[in-house]
Design a binder for these strands. Structure first.
Length: 114
DNA sequence: ATTCTGACGTGGG
DNA sequence: CCCCACGCCAGAA
């Protein structure tokens, strides 16, 4: 019997491929998985990613490059610290040069990956 | 079962 | 550019 990987698992698989020092958005992941419009579910998946430590949830932000999820990390600055340790500049919850370091799964991964 | 809440995105004004 | 309304759908109460 074949088991279709759950939406959450597919989100995690894509998230693990985000290159060091790069970021992507919830919507970009959702679109790559053929679930455009379900960006909120990607956020929900990240919320439950506590069990999956190999998921770099800090590299996923909203479409404006704003660290909207930093509240869900330990402390008040962990998400920003993780990003800055990778060379990403964050000022007032906003990623600088967002368009430059943005990584689109549909361009960085083979279509078969999903 | 129903209602509400989100780590969101898009379209219209 | 900003603001608002709506769609999205998995969980919690």
């Amino acid at each position: 019997m074949k088991q279709e990987p759950s939406f959450f698992d597919r989100v995690y698989r894509v998230a693990r491929e985000i290159p060091y020092g790069r970021v992507t958005s919830y919507g970009a992941i959702a679109r790559f998985l053929g679930q455009a419009g379900s960006a909120r579910m990607v956020g929900w998946a990240m919320n439950a990613s506590g069990k999956h430590e190999d998921v770099p949830a800090h590299r996923v932000v909203n479409r404006k490059g704003l660290l909207t999820g930093k509240h869900h990390f330990e402390g008040t600055n962990l998400m920003q610290q993780l990003l800055e340790s990778e060379g990403v500049v964050v000022i007032e919850h906003q990623i600088q040069d967002f368009e430059t370091i943005f990584w689109d799964p549909s361009e960085g991964l083979p279509q078969e990956f999903q």
